[in-house]
Simulated scan of single mutants.
Amino acid sequence: MNTMIKIREATKEDAARLVEIYSYYVLNTAVSFEYEVPSVEEFTERMGNVMKKYPYLVAVKDDYIVGYVYAGTYSARDAYSWTVANSIYVDKDYRRQGIGALMYGELEKRLKDLGIVNMLAGSAFCETEDEYLSHDSYEFHKHMGYEKVAQLKGIGKKFDRWYDLLWMQKKLQPEV
């Protein structure tokens, strides 16, 4: 565990740095199926919508944000109130240092306190890794205790290639 990493609540003032982190994934990878990097204003609005109900956290190393994680509404229907869809991004220069695991650990604690039962993660996937997509996200989520529960074939097209979307699920606690 990297003790130099601090996890804290995100603020809207963090949006510009979070866009910097996210922009790498939008422009250079199939990890995100977005084609264009959102503006800081749009990203700030997205953050605000999440923060009304769920945790939005950042990882900080030496006063520098190196990653972020959040949980959001899976579906607006009441029956899904105990399930969230989460996203996690680590600065490309800080990957494989345990930051993602630290962020997920804190997110899970906070979600349990909210009574959340299920965490879902959507992960872009291709059977054969290419220059735009590795199996890193899939392997990370498996390592964090998620199981693959669905695979939507050829659902996202980016860089003139079709990619699958895996839905991965982790039970945080028994159904209440």
Rank of each mutant, 00 (worst) to 15 (best):
N2I: 08
M4R: 13
K6Q: 14
K6S: 14
I7N: 03
E9K: 15
A10D: 04
K12H: 08
K12A: 11
A16G: 06
L18K: 10
L18W: 04
E20F: 10
I21S: 01
Y22K: 10
S23I: 05
Y25E: 06
V26D: 05
V26I: 15
S32A: 13
S32F: 04
S32Y: 06
E34V: 06
E34R: 08
Y35A: 03
E36N: 12
E36A: 14
S39R: 03
S39P: 01
V40G: 01
E41G: 05
F43T: 00
F43N: 00
T44C: 06
T44G: 04
R46C: 02
V50M: 05
V50L: 05
P55I: 12
Y56I: 10
Y56W: 15
Y56Q: 10
V58S: 04
V58E: 00
A59C: 06
D62A: 15
I65N: 05
G67N: 01
A71D: 02
T73R: 12
A76K: 11
R77M: 10
D78N: 14
D78V: 15
A79T: 12
W82Q: 12
T83E: 03
A85R: 12
I88Y: 06
V90W: 01
V90C: 08
D91S: 14
D93N: 15
D93I: 05
G98T: 05
A101D: 06
L102A: 12
E106Q: 11
E106P: 05
E106Y: 06
L107Q: 00
K109C: 08
L111H: 07
L111K: 08
L111P: 02
K112A: 03
D113F: 04
V117A: 00
N118I: 13
N118S: 11
M119R: 04
A121I: 12
E127K: 15
E129I: 13
E129G: 10
E129V: 13
E129D: 13
D130P: 11
D130Y: 11
E131Q: 14
Y132K: 06
H135D: 10
H135E: 10
E139P: 00
M144D: 07
G145L: 08
G154Y: 10
I155K: 11
G156A: 15
G156I: 09
K158R: 09
K158W: 05
D160A: 14
R161H: 14
Y163D: 02
W167I: 12
K170Q: 03
K170S: 02
K171I: 14
L172C: 05
P174H: 09
E175A: 10
